[in-house]
C-alpha cells in the first residue's frame, strides 16, 4: 500500500487537540490520525505543548475535601462505556459515529451513495461511495471541506489521493474528485453544511433530500 502523502496542517491539529475544531471536522481529523503515524506524532507534540502550558499554570488551591472525596471514589464500580474500535476500513471515530452498525447507504444518483454520520447547523460528516471511474457530482461547499480516503483512491485538479490521504479544500476550490478505475472509492467527507450537489437537482429542493 502506498504511503500517505496528504496530511493535516499544524493549525488544524492544534485546534483539534484543544477542542476548538467543530465536531464534524474533528471526526475527519481523528480518523486520519488513526491511519497516519506522522500526524499522530504531530498531534502528540501538540498535547505535550498543552502539557507544558498546564505545568506552567498558576495554581489555584482546591477545596479541602476534594482529595478525600476522590479517594473514596477510586474503588467505586464503573459502568463500562461502549468502546469502539476499528472495523475493516472504518477507523474508530467512524465506527463510533455509526454506533457499531454498518453504514446505511442512500443513493444520490449516478451510482454515488452516501451515509450521513451526523448533520447539524454547524456542519456535516458523511461517508461517500463512488464507483470506479465515477466523478463526485459537482458540489459546492461553504468553508472548508475535508475528504479522507478509506478505500480505493480518487484524483482531482489538485492531485491524487489514496487510502489515508486527506484533502483539505477551502471554499474557493471548485473541484471534481473522480474515483480511479479499479476499486470503488469510499471517503469520509466533512463539510460546513450543506453540501450542495449542483448538477443533480435545483438547490431549492435540496433540503428535502438532505443532501
Amino acid at each position: 500500500m502506498s504511503a500517505i502523502t496528504h496530511h493535516i496542517p499544524d493549525a488544524i491539529l492544534a485546534a483539534y487537540t484543544s477542542g476548538s475544531l467543530p465536531h464534524h471536522y474533528a471526526v475527519a481529523v481523528a480518523s486520519h490520525v488513526s491511519l497516519c503515524l506522522q500526524c499522530r506524532a504531530s498531534l502528540e507534540a501538540h498535547q505535550n505543548m498543552g502539557g507544558a502550558l498546564l505545568d506552567a499554570t498558576d495554581r489555584v488551591a482546591v477545596s479541602g475535601h476534594m482529595k478525600a472525596d476522590l479517594l473514596a471514589q477510586l474503588d467505586a464500580p464503573v459502568t463500562p462505556e461502549p468502546v469502539y474500535t476499528r472495523q475493516g476500513i472504518y477507523p474508530r471515530p467512524v465506527v463510533e459515529a455509526l454506533k457499531g452498525q454498518d453504514p446505511r447507504w442512500k443513493s444520490v444518483g449516478m451510482g454515488v451513495r452516501q451515509s450521513i454520520l451526523s448533520e447539524t447547523k454547524e456542519g456535516s460528516v458523511r461517508l461517500l461511495y463512488i464507483p470506479p471511474g465515477q466523478a463526485v457530482p459537482d458540489h459546492g461547499h461553504n468553508g472548508m471541506e475535508m475528504t479522507l480516503v478509506l478505500q480505493g483512491s480518487f484524483s482531482d485538479e489538485t492531485g491524487h489521493f489514496g487510502v489515508g490521504d486527506i484533502e483539505i479544500a477551502n471554499e474557493d476550490l471548485d473541484h471534481t474528485p473522480t474515483a480511479d478505475p479499479g476499486e470503488a472509492c469510499i471517503c469520509l467527507a466533512a463539510t460546513d453544511a450543506p453540501l450542495r450537489f449542483n448538477a443533480l437537482m435545483p438547490r431549492l429542493l435540496q433540503p428535502f433530500f438532505r443532501i
Binding site: 502528540e44 498535547q47 505535550n48 498543552g50 502539557g51 507544558a52 498546564l54 505545568d55
Partner: peptide, 10 residues
C-alpha cells in the same frame, strides 16, 4: 510518547 502533563492536558 507523552509527559504526564500532556496526557492529563488532553
Amino acid at each position: 510518547r507523552a509527559q504526564v502533563s500532556a496526557w492529563i492536558y488532553q
